[in-house]
Design a protein around this nucleic acid. Structure first.
Lengths: 359, 359
DNA sequence: TTGTATGCGTTATCAT
DNA sequence: ATGATAACGCATACAA
């Protein structure tokens, strides 16, 4: 039982372990990576030696050697959105469990995630890719350039693209948005604004807008373009408290008749809630707000945020599952998961006057 | 003007560039890394070739080669605390600007950051280390094992340790906590609780507790151990909304006479605010709350959080500056920065009855 | 079962 | 100014 050597000048490498254990480096590699080809006895001895020497394999050497075969990358768009941060950990664990190396790439909200992915693939080989967040408006040709299996996470169906050519895991953005909007309609609201999506948005934003519009149409309520609010973000992140605050402030100035808000992200909803309260409105008596995502802080504002919760961890786990299946040769698949409406305190019936009053 | 080659099977390496430009690999390396030893003419030609080939240096190969000389590591404790997340980006940029590689290590709140750092140093050589967040209760011997320059960030003076042996950047936790508490005292509060620190905490927590106690002593107000609330976190993160909520809930049950709260972190303050509001209290009329940190979401709860803002970006930048200076051989130094009390809406005078009423 | 030799892509040393 | 070559630390085809 020798003590672990205190860190002296040089770091202990696989060669040192091999020398100390009286074996070749390859046996050490095998013993430590659970590969066959080493007797149990030597395996144990090598492990003991490695432990006592305080050996830790060099991450970058492994990466360099293994990148193309045992590493994946996570393209993360919207790092500032707490909703995605909780998913990161799940992906990290999934990769670790399977002994894959993970590269996390933060994609700025103004950048093109596929371009970034292509750059990454040029830079280091990866066995697979995850696109987390962002809008996705790409042509089949772009995607084909990736050359490796990939999964879109929290991004659902791509219109007009061969379903055999991509995998995805998401909630049904159309259906869930319709549900959120229907909830407000059911409470009696008629003048419901959509916050965080413009009239010309595509991809996820478009799906949520359509869900919102479909709910209004179902209820025989006229679609009112003045209540659809998004874009004109000058370099700002589309998912931030500040953005929600500003959208709401402007909306209240221009359309004080609004009684219900459906925000396409909780951060936007929370910013909007603050703006409404600052404006002197009572929530939910004067104004109802429903969010989308289900981030933790939504339960710590007051009133608690009513929101459509996405099963973030489930999405992240299924994403990884599908990616690793794809790497093993499984065909592409698209999965839609169920969201869940979490009742908080930000939504209630509109004031009586609003129910019957004139436009 | 040839188009960039579409990503075909193999990735383009430095050798490909060298071959295409008709030079040796070393010239390519020099040209692309702004190293001397290449004529301007060939440098430009190489760059053009690299661009047209879509060459991107392999990160892991660079890491493997450069780690000991041009890479640093960030030991991040409390990844879930938004306060630290904003600082991460600053460190990333600082490293990139100086062309250093950065390894980010997430240290679980229950783990020992120095142990983790030693493991890291065993695993890959680094030229320097940053410890961000966490409490720091280590013996000189532990620190000496690191063998590389390091800077404690948001961790101030270490008691009983030679100031020549470590660098640090932080606010004066003692003084700023006293200031925050004094603010509550100045409003007329006398029964002020400290949330998030126990009586036996050390390091940063201890400094903040002492600042709180000093303010009370200055005001001739008796220190009341029943109002100092921390610890007993069963595996939970010490910096979370939930923790603040639970601390506050229990406090209200046991000490309903409290009128002021000083929480040692904004996340705790926000959890406490929610608990108070859920409990039916009005803030600030029935209860005043002051936080510490200055995270963004504090401005989006209602009322806005009154808090002692730490200059996070400044701390992060100075931390990097000192680290790189240390790597270049500069001596250790400790820096204390000024905090700033941001007035929100969560703190006001106590109810009149509380001012004069019996204990 | 075990070891030798080679390559991953880069930068640094030492020649020329 | 330029290039051949040797590391960096690991994993693996191939040989024994």
């Amino acid at each position: 039982m020798t003590d672990p050597e205190p860190t002296v000048g040089r770091r202990v490498t696989i060669k040192d372990v091999a020398r100390a254990a009286g074996v070749g480096v390859v046996s050490v590699s095998r013993a430590l990576n659970d590969q066959p080809g080493v007797s149990n006895e030597t395996r144990e001895r090598i492990r003991e030696t490695a432990r006592s020497l305080g050996y830790r394999p060099n991450r970058h050497a492994r990466f360099l050697k293994l990148s193309s075969s045992r590493s994946i990358a996570l393209m993360m768009k919207g790092i500032d959105n707490p909703f995605f941060q909780q998913m990161l950990e799940t992906v990290e664990n999934a990769a670790r469990e399977r002994d894959y190396l993970l590269s996390v790439i933060k994609v700025p909200h103004y950048a093109d995630e596929v371009d970034e992915a292509i750059m990454l693939v040029d830079e280091e080989a990866v066995a697979g890719l995850i696109f987390l967040g962002g809008n996705f408006t790409h042509q089949p040709g772009d995607l084909a350039r990736l050359q490796v299996p990939f999964v879109l996470s929290t991004i659902g169906q791509l219109e007009g693209i061969d379903p055999g050519s991509y995998s995805s895991v998401a909630v049904d953005d159309f259906a869930e948005s319709r549900r959120a909007t229907q909830y407000l309609l059911g409470l009696g609201h008629r003048r419901i604004a959509l916050l965080g999506v413009g009239l010309r948005d595509s991809s996820v934003g478009m799906l949520r807008r359509r869900g919102y519009q479909a709910a209004l149409a179902d209820a025989g309520s006229p679609s009112d373009d003045g209540l659809v609010r998004g874009l004109d973000l000058n370099g700002r992140s589309p998912y931030s408290f500040e953005y929600g605050y500003q959208l709401m402030t402007r909306l209240l100035a221009e359309r004080p008749d609004v009684t219900g808000i459906f925000a396409v992200a909780d951060v936007i909803a929370i910013g909007a809630l603050k703006a409404a309260l600052d404006h002197g409105l009572r929530v939910p008596q004067d104004l109802s707000i429903v969010g989308f995502d289900g981030i933790q802080v939504g339960q710590y504002v007051h009133p608690s945020l009513t929101t459509l919760v996405q099963p973030a961890l489930e999405i992240a786990e299924l994403t990884c599952q599908i990616l690793f299946d794809s790497i093993s040769g499984a065909p592409a698949r698209q999965e839609l998961l169920q969201g869940e409406l979490r009742l908080g305190g930000t939504a209630g019936p509109p004031r009586r006057g609003d129910l019957v009053g004139p436009r």
